[in-house]
Design a protein around this nucleic acid. Structure first.
Length: 424
RNA sequence: GGAGAGAUGGCAGAGUGGUCGAAUGCGGCGGUCUUGAAAACCGUUAUUCGAGCGAUCGGAUCGGGGGUUCGAAUCCCUCUCUCUCCGCCA
């Protein structure tokens, strides 16, 4: 959520920046300013009436004490109309505040100045690529066939137990999954991220805090009985650790990592894009979350990018890093880097990580602040997060790219975790 | 799931319906003393909205929401959460 101060003071800037996200918010911004001005005026009136009532009430107290009953009764008369006015003003105020809030939450975060203009993924900017050279070979088998051949991931069985998008990992497939999670968590903790195991369900306040609610209600699984949501990413519970928190400046940067299963309804998806592991309703992911001083949040972002890149290098996967264009960015993000790995059998790039700086957009919703040493004032902190990494597409790429006549070759770095060199 | 108790400032813990944003203690910060430190003593110590260039002034906030009253931390209703006991259980 953008701050009112920013909108009031930099109206044109807000409109111009959001044009990069292909949003025309001129009308919304005008409404917000009008509502906010209204709000101020109403609060002013209401405050004055309240001050008057408080004064009269105190006087009545004094009169009662000194036994001047007649005078007290007379003073009570004054409060009648005062209270009526306060009631009406209070209702109007609540009304305008709701209207203001309703428009305010529809505004996406402002994109950073480095965000390229554009509408589709085609317009994303390739920052750099790396890893081993891509092997051109038409004989390569896609991962869904390899999964069946070695009996390591069973989509049909998951279909029977739950439904599409809930695979069962079996034998070396299950161990491989667990190995990757362990590897990612170890890498993160070695890089200074504190590991947490968060709840996998969150309440409404948490959903709002990170921006999933009210916007993307339909993308989360919802338990209506207890009004809880299955997390779509560990970002939600982990970032919400800091809801309503005031940090000391010396605590920055706060770095957390968490493994969690992620649940996404992905309503409306179909076709070959979602085949096999490409898109699931339940998948595993290790997330990294950083709460940073606004002064250096972009340095922190680059460090996170380096961390993720390093993981891909260690796994020996061909990758590329994209800076997302305005049209492809999420509602809450200021700047996002996507990481893609090349899947040699499917012959396409698969997104495996997304690393973003949200600046104060989430912090404003979360009321996540820090005490500024210089001014002694509470200021909004910056939040960042990234996948490090999401498992299924990494697994897909590893299976496809490492297939040999002897089985799937396990990357060197994972051997201490798997205990086997081949999936066969 | 059943029965009971509770929710007050960073923490602990008072609070008779009337200057209570709230005693006191601890902690934190600043100072005196000291070569330095400790101890002792003195002072200070919430958030947020609005008005003003500013000193400052006003409003709101004692788990959330609603009510009674001229006036609510204090009384009433309701929701949430925590604790104790019983039941069930990985």
């Amino acid at each position: 959520m953008l701050t009112l101060k920013l909108i009031q003071e930099n109206k044109e800037f807000v409109i111009e920046r959001l044009a990069v996200k292909n949003k025309n918010v001129g009308e919304s911004v005008e409404k917000i300013i009008e509502f906010d001005n209204n709000r101020r005026s109403l609060q002013n009136q209401s405050d004055n009436k309240l001050a008057e009532l408080n004064k009269v009430s105190q006087e009545i107290g004094q009169l009662m004490k000194s036994g001047q009953k007649e005078e007290a009764e007379k003073a009570k008369q004054i409060t009648v109309s005062l209270k009526e006015d306060i009631k009406i003003l209070g209702q109007q105020l609540a009304d305008i505040e709701k209207q203001l809030h309703d428009v305010l939450v529809t505004l996406p975060n402002l994109p950073h100045s480095s965000v390229p203009k554009g509408k589709t993924p085609e317009d994303n900017e390739i920052v750099r690529s790396g890893g081993p050279a891509i092997k051109e070979n038409d004989q390569m088998v896609p991962h869904w066939d390899l999964a069946k051949k070695y009996d390591i991931i069973d989509f049909d069985l998951g279909n029977k137990i739950t439904g599409a998008g809930f695979p069962v990992y079996k034998g070396k497939g299950a161990k491989f999954q667990r190995s990757l999670i362990g590897f990612f968590l170890d890498e993160a903790t070695n890089a200074g991220f504190r590991e947490v195991i968060p709840p996998f369900m969150v309440n409404e306040d948490s959903g709002f805090g990170t921006g999933q609610l009210p916007d993307k209600e339909g993308q989360m699984y919802h338990d209506a009985t207890d009004n809880l949501y299955l997390i779509p990413t560990a970002e939600v519970p982990v970032t919400n650790i800091f809801r309503d928190v005031v940090l000391n400046e010396s605590e920055f940067p706060v770095k957390y990592t968490a493994y969690s299963p992620c649940f996404r309804r992905e309503a409306g998806s179909y076709g070959k894009e979602v085949r096999g592991l490409n898109r699931l309703h339940q998948f595993d992911k290790v997330e990294i979350v950083v709460v940073a001083n606004p002064k250096d949040s972009y340095e922190q972002l680059e460090k996170m990018v380096d961390h993720v890149e390093n993981l891909l290098l260690k796994l020996e996967l061909p990758y590329r890093i994209l800076r997302l264009c305005g049209g492809d960015m999420s509602f809450t993000s200021s700047l996002t880097y996507d990481f893609e790995v090349y899947s040699e059998a499917q012959k396409r790039w698969l997104e495996v990580s997304s690393v973003s700086n949200f600046e104060s957009f989430q912090a404003n919703r979360l009321k996540l602040r820090y005490k500024d040493e210089a001014t002694k004032k509470n200021q909004l902190a910056h939040t960042l997060n990234g996948s490090a990494l999401a498992l299924p597409r990494i697994v897909a790429a590893l299976l496809e790219n490492n297939q040999t006549p002897d089985g799937i070759k396990v990357p060197e770095i994972l051997l201490p975790y798997t205990g086997f060199k081949f999936i066969d």
